[in-house]
Simulated scan of single mutants.
Amino acid sequence: MQWWWTVVSAFSAYLYLHVLCRLLGRKVLSQFNFFDFASAITIGALTSQIAIPSKDWKQAALAVGIFTVLTLLLDYLIQKSPGLRSLVNSKPKMVIYKGQIDSQQLRKARLNLDELLTILRQKNVFHPGDVYCAILETDGQLSVLPKSDKMPITPSDLNRKPPEKGMMNDVIKDGNIITKNLRHAGYDDKWLQQKLREQGVQSIGEVFYAGVDGQGALYVSKRDKAGIESGNIYLQ
């Protein structure tokens, strides 16, 4: 019966963790501060003890519940108190201003010069002098504002306003037409079939994904055959 009790315990732990995550709400991993990350690891470790039958599973479940309550309480207090928010999450730090690197702010952020230059290159900035300001956010991400003469030209700079493409409506997934989305976009099956033929597609079954934007442009991605015909490109 030990294996059966293991299955029941693992299933119960899974449901328990799912409920706790719903209570805690959604937060992207990149938005975690260090404390959020440590709490998530601890909750996961304690939940694993619930999944494995032992005499301590009740204590582990209680500990996970306490961690969840404390996390919810801290999130609530952070929302109500800007001072506590600054204490827990720290403050954003401006590490570059008008092309000049602030070494003092770098030291406070425990970020060295090589790391800063690497992050800038990842954002397609290869010269710190091109940066008007760079702010190290509380989640560890670097927000970079280039100087005005280093920004790419946009249509608004040329007093032009191109038509909005809008969101892509999924009309075919894995060879199946999503009729509801097609109707919502203002088109029917006849229009879809015509557009597919214009792109050399004779059967819906050939399509892995298709979507239509606000301008009526249809994007089509065929099944695996498209990847083979593209030249077998491999990424290391």
Rank of each mutant, 00 (worst) to 15 (best):
T47R: 02
Q49A: 11
I50A: 13
I50Y: 06
A51E: 09
A51Y: 03
I52H: 13
S54I: 06
S54W: 00
K55M: 04
K55Y: 04
K55S: 10
W57M: 13
Q59G: 11
A61K: 02
A61M: 05
L62T: 04
L62P: 01
A63Y: 12
V64A: 15
G65Q: 03
F67N: 00
F67M: 13
T68E: 05
T68M: 03
T68N: 14
V69R: 09
L70R: 01
L70E: 11
L70M: 12
L70A: 11
L72K: 14
L72A: 15
D75G: 11
Y76A: 15
I78Q: 10
I78K: 09
Q79D: 14
K80P: 13
S81E: 12
S81I: 10
S81R: 10
P82T: 13
R85K: 13
R85P: 06
S86T: 07
L87Q: 06
L87K: 05
V88M: 06
N89R: 14
N89V: 07
N89C: 12
K91R: 15
K91F: 14
P92L: 14
K93Q: 15
V95H: 05
V95P: 03
I96V: 12
I96Y: 06
Y97P: 00
Y97F: 12
Y97I: 09
K98P: 01
K98M: 02
K98N: 09
G99Q: 11
G99E: 07
D102E: 07
S103C: 00
S103P: 00
Q104Y: 12
Q104R: 14
Q105F: 13
Q105Y: 01
Q105T: 01
L106N: 10
R107Y: 05
R107V: 03
K108Q: 13
K108R: 15
A109P: 03
A109L: 03
A109E: 09
R110W: 01
R110A: 09
R110P: 00
L111C: 04
N112F: 02
N112T: 00
N112H: 02
L113T: 03
D114E: 04
D114R: 01
L117T: 00
L117Q: 01
L117D: 01
L117F: 03
I119S: 10
L120S: 02
R121A: 05
Q122M: 08
Q122N: 08
K123M: 06
V125D: 02
V125K: 02
F126V: 10
H127C: 08
P128I: 02
P128T: 05
G129R: 13
D130Y: 04
D130I: 09
D130K: 13
D130F: 11
C133Q: 11
A134L: 02
I135F: 05
I135Q: 11
I135C: 08
L136D: 10
L136C: 14
E137S: 07
E137P: 10
T138E: 02
T138V: 05
D139H: 03
D139M: 00
D139G: 09
G140H: 04
Q141M: 13
Q141W: 04
L142M: 05
L142C: 08
S143I: 08
V144R: 15
L145I: 15
L145P: 05
K147T: 09
D149T: 08
D149M: 07
K150H: 11
